[in-house]
Amino acid sequence: MSAMGPDSLSFVVVMYVGAFGLLVIGAIGMVMSNHLFRMVLALVIAEAGANLLLVLSGWRDGALAPILGTHAADVPMVDPVPQVLVLTAIVIGVGVQALAVSVLLKIHRIYGTLDVRALRRHLELDICRDAGMAPEGSREAPAGERPLPPPIPVADALRTAATDQTGATS
């Protein structure tokens, strides 16, 4: 590792490893975990990783902070634009997290659980009940059943179709 001055190449490599590491850990956490609250925490980590990567994209070797007055005027300065982007991204992240936590509160109050698999079943049941039909794959409407028989010659299609349907779906 050639030490080319204080901010040598290895400093940037370490930072990039940190940024990509946070991103992958956050993505794994969001995708693999089974508890909604833990997914929100993994989202926090993924956002921190993306913000770190964004600030890194403006970093220059040997440049200082873009605040005038704290150092000599002609010293090279770091690119200020990615820092503005990250300021915005951080506050967006907090807004989304606060909304996520409040919706989790309501889910927990209604269903008492935050497990992703259980909640997906609840979701399916509720949508079917809200639409006023038997849930998928239940005794009344086995999954494989097709609501309408294959089309029969047009002449008496309407009459037979009507009788078949009501028989099948009532």
Binding site: A48, N51, V55, A65, I67, Q83, V86, L87, I90
Partner: peptide
Amino acid sequence: LHAPDVAMTE
């Protein structure tokens, strides 16, 4: 990374 604003916000 010389980003004091962002460090404070974070």
